[in-house]
């Protein structure tokens, strides 16, 4: 079984997000970037499936700027076999990414695409679902557990109010939720090996995919600074203020 894992380069979730001075976008200049945590979880699961003998190859795909190569190297150092970089700047919208991934799937014929449920930059939560529709494959989103069987996957999904189990035919698109597994840190021998693992380069044009942007970003603002609260002397005063000033009762 061949597994394809899309990986996205995002702002490191542990650093504070800054907004550009002209409010046109988030300021990424000199910001620390990292692999999207949900992608990392999916890569970890894919590598575990390989270690358990269910998969023969784990291929990573990054769509984005040239520096996404570093994100690929991070995944290769975890244990993935090779990488594919589709250079596209600015990064395409979810539909564009899904079309690119579809084209890569046509080339690579994976048995499973294991993606993160969403990327922590735009929180779109669309790419996996769109890819499944474009490929006409089954999908299992928000996966917190996966079992591999001969002709299907048995997945557990986290849904409102509980867990849902689905039997999904192969091939399929799965997207990883937070509790699926904990990603490993790369070992030194694997970090050194990752430098030598191959990365193929494409552009959307090479793949015959049109990735025009349909959305325009209007404005990005910092959340308003929290105002100091007030103290009231009595319950009566509190009720008055809630009624007259806050108008919530």
């Amino acid at each position: 079984m061949k597994i394809l894992c899309p990986v996205k380069r995002v702002l490191d979730p542990y650093v504070k997000v800054r907004v550009k001075q002209d409010n046109s976008d988030v300021d990424l200049a000199n910001a620390k970037m990292a692999m999207n945590p949900f992608c990392e979880i999916a890569v970890e699961q894919a590598i575990r499936l390989k270690e358990q003998g269910h998969a023969s190859e784990v291929v990573l795909v990054a769509v984005g700027p040239q520096q996404s190569q570093e994100t690929l190297r991070t995944g290769l150092a975890m244990g993935a076999d090779r990488g594919i970089l589709v250079k596209a700047e600015p990064a395409p919208e979810p539909l564009g990414v899904a079309k690119i991934l579809k084209a890569i799937c046509d080339k690579e014929s994976p048995d499973l695409v294991f993606a993160g449920k969403q990327a922590v930059d735009g929180d779109n939560n669309q790419t996996g679902q769109m890819l499944s529709a474009l490929l006409g494959w089954a999908q299992g989103t928000f996966v917190s557990k996966v079992e591999v069987h001969d002709d299907h996957f048995l997945v557990t999904r986290e849904i409102d109010g509980g867990l849902e189990q689905l039997k999904i035919g192969r091939p399929a698109v799965l997207t990883a939720d937070l509790r699926l597994c904990e990603p490993r840190y790369a070992s030194l021998p694997n970090i050194m090996k990752a430098k030598k693992k191959p990365i193929d380069n494409y552009t959307p044009e090479d793949l015959g995919v049109e990735v025009g942007h349909r959305l325009t970003l209007q404005k990005v603002e910092e959340p308003p600074a929290r105002q100091a609260g007030i103290k009231v002397d009595s319950v009566g005063e509190l009720v008055d203020k809630l009624h007259d000033e806050a108008k919530v009762i």
């Binding site: 190297r73 991070t74 150092a77 840190y185 790369a186 070992s187 030194l188 970090i191 990752a194 430098k195």
Partner: peptide, 13 residues
């Protein structure tokens, strides 16, 4: 740089 990043990730835990 790659080794440094690997050690940082490990130590962050």
């Amino acid at each position: 740089p790659e080794i440094r990043q690997g050690v940082r990730d490990l130590c962050a835990r």
